[in-house]
Computed example of a mutant assay.
Amino acid sequence: MTARDQDLRTQKIWARDAPHYDGWMRRFDRLMLRGGRDRLCERAHGRVLEVAVGTGLNLPHYPKGTDLTGVDLSPDMLARARVRAADLGVDATLSEASATRLPFPDGSFDTVVCALALCCIPDDRAAVAEMHRVLAPGGTLLLIDHVISHRFAVRTLQRAIEPLMLKLADDHQLRRPLHLVREAGFSVVERERYSFGVIERLVAVKSGQE
């Protein structure tokens, strides 16, 4: 499948799911994230980029006055994010772009945020590499996602549902972003796993020598 074909498939999936997404995620957040958005976004500083901003569920959790840019491949999700930003009075630049082809020069941001999105990006390695590229030296990556659990029973269930979730939503159940973050050249300075090992939150820093 070409990159263009994959983009079209992704947009079709989110056009279908956008009307229901917030309801699903409110339940997921309550049961699994348990304040994870707050703990993630409160660390954002300087020029901030949120990759795969979706419907903007993170917008209320950023510090007031955050210089925020958000991108998403789905115009349907972005439309809802723009409404949410307006309702909250949040000044954010929201535009359509692929996580694997970010339309920004090297070193454009001080913080990059990605929340519950790498699981649905087909080329997660390329996405993490792009996050590293657009961060300024010394910049911070803030990442939270569902990952393969370290608990055998949970991991077995994840393996069982993986084919269905990939077919329905390109939603990978068995990934571990930690390894990609290190491979891209980040230094992981904070790591938290909880909710039966399914949720992982990472704080990582790009070398200040680049």
Rank of each mutant, 00 (worst) to 15 (best):
T100G: 06
V53F: 01
C41E: 14
L143P: 11
R34L: 10
H179R: 15
D106Q: 10
V147A: 00
R30W: 10
V51H: 05
I199E: 09
R191C: 02
H172M: 10
E130H: 06
L57C: 01
E130I: 06
M25T: 09
V188C: 07
D29C: 10
G65M: 03
D170Q: 06
L178H: 13
A204E: 08
F152D: 02
G185R: 06
V128S: 10
D110S: 11
L68A: 08
G65A: 05
I144N: 01
Y194G: 08
A117R: 02
W14G: 03
D171Q: 04
E192P: 01
A126K: 13
K167T: 06
C119R: 05
S74D: 08
V112G: 07
C120M: 15
L174V: 08
D123M: 05
S207W: 06
L57Y: 03
H20C: 02
D17S: 09
L57H: 04
D76G: 04
S149C: 12
W24F: 13
K167F: 08
I121Q: 05
L73A: 13
A153F: 14
L178A: 13
R26E: 15
G138W: 10
P19T: 12
P122W: 04
E162H: 15
E183D: 12
L33T: 08
W24H: 07
V48E: 00
L57A: 10
A169T: 01
R16A: 11
M25F: 15
M165I: 00
V51Q: 08
D170H: 07
V113C: 14
Y21I: 01
T156Y: 05
A129D: 15
L180Q: 12
D67S: 12
A184N: 08
H146L: 00
G197C: 00
R201P: 04
